[in-house]
Structure formats: structure tokens, C-alpha cells
């Protein structure tokens, strides 16, 4: 078993189980901090999938940005959020949670069934990519290529997403301002 495989399984286990802990925890702050761990493990998985730039972006934007934002919102909204969480029953799986657990498990069963039967490991286009040498190898850096592609081939989505980001910025600032006395 190679080092990469061991690292992959470690990262995958950490990601899945910390995700489950986030879902099962009764304490909101604890689950937010556990979500850090999930995101960092996912960044590790991106590195193993040979997408280092995406992994760095994940750490910078998700861990540095979004989680701090969630913590801020949590602190601004006060005690009510905590009480809403702790009113839930203490049993591990209460009866009211049963339908959603069932839904998630059945959905996972369907997805796993489809993935095993679709044979994702020997698709024709991935085989073609392997034959023509289009696969990213572990010893080459593609960050320059991503930059060039972002400015040439994907220029239109790039511009669209920048306009959307501006809209979201203005919208969030507008929504969260103090109410005017009118």
C-alpha cells in the first residue's frame, strides 16, 4: 500500500467522521469548530487529487473567510441560537429524526449503487486522457496553466462571477445595515 493511498484513506476518514460529528453534535460552537477539521481534511483530499491551487483557495476562502463569517453571525445573533440547539432531545436518534436519517441513508445507498455500477474507473474519456498524456502528474505544477486558462478560455465565466460577487457584496451590505427610522 503506497503512501498516497494511506494518506487518502486517513483524510477521507477524517473528513467523513468529522462531517458526521458536525451533523450529530448538540453544541453549535463545537460543530462549527469541527467543521474547520472537515474543511481542512477536504483541502488535503484536493491535494491528493493533484489540485494544489484549489486546496490553497479552499483554506484561504473557506477556513479563513466563511467560517469566521459564520462565527460572527453566531455571536451577533446571541443566546437564542444556542437555546434552539439545546432544546433538542438528548437521545442519539430520536424518533423525529428518523425520517431524515432514513432519507440520507437511502440517498447514499442509491448514489453508492450508481457509482459502483457506472464504472467510473474505466470511463472511455479518462482512458483516452491517460493514453494521450493529458493526466496531471504529481511532479508538475499547473498553477501558471490555470492562470492562463482563467484569462483566456474561461474569461466569460470569470467576468460573470466577478459581477455576481459584486452584487452579493452590495446585497449583503444592504441587508445587514441598521434599520432607518423612516
Amino acid at each position: 500500500m503506497s503512501m498516497v493511498k494511506i494518506l487518502f484513506y486517513v483524510m477521507a476518514t477524517v473528513a467523513v467522521f468529522s462531517g458526521l460529528y458536525v451533523a450529530a453534535s448538540k453544541n453549535l460552537v463545537r460543530s462549527i469548530f469541527m467543521f474547520f477539521v472537515t474543511l481542512l481534511a477536504l483541502a488535503g483530499l484536493y491535494v491528493i487529487a493533484l489540485a494544489d491551487f484549489v486546496a490553497i483557495t479552499q483554506i484561504v476562502i473557506y477556513v479563513g473567510g466563511i467560517l469566521v463569517l459564520i462565527l460572527f453571525a453566531f455571536m451577533l445573533s446571541g443566546k437564542e441560537t444556542l437555546e434552539a440547539v439545546q432544546q433538542q432531545k438528548d437521545r442519539f436518534i430520536s424518533l423525529s429524526k428518523l425520517p431524515s436519517v432514513l432519507l440520507a441513508l437511502l440517498f447514499f445507498a442509491v448514489m453508492a449503487y450508481v457509482f459502483y455500477n457506472s464504472g467510473a474507473d474505466n470511463l472511455t474519456w479518462t482512458k483516452q486522457a491517460v493514453q494521450t498524456g493529458q493526466v496531471i502528474k504529481a511532479n508538475e505544477s499547473l498553477i501558471e496553466n490555470i492562470g492562463v486558462n482563467l484569462m483566456t478560455r474561461y474569461l466569460l465565466p470569470f467576468e460573470a462571477i466577478s459581477i455576481l460577487l459584486l452584487l452579493a457584496l452590495v446585497g449583503a451590505a444592504h441587508l445587514s445595515r441598521k434599520e432607518q427610522q423612516a
Binding site: 467523513v16 458526521l20 458536525v22 472537515t38 477536504l42 432519507l103 440520507a104 440517498f107 447514499f108 453508492a112
Partner: peptide, 9 residues
């Protein structure tokens, strides 16, 4: 898929 189902739950 496992992460997606956790999020769905």
C-alpha cells in the same frame, strides 16, 4: 457521496 448525504441530513 458520504459528505453530500451528511449535508442533506
Amino acid at each position: 457521496a458520504a459528505l453530500f448525504c451528511t449535508g442533506l441530513y
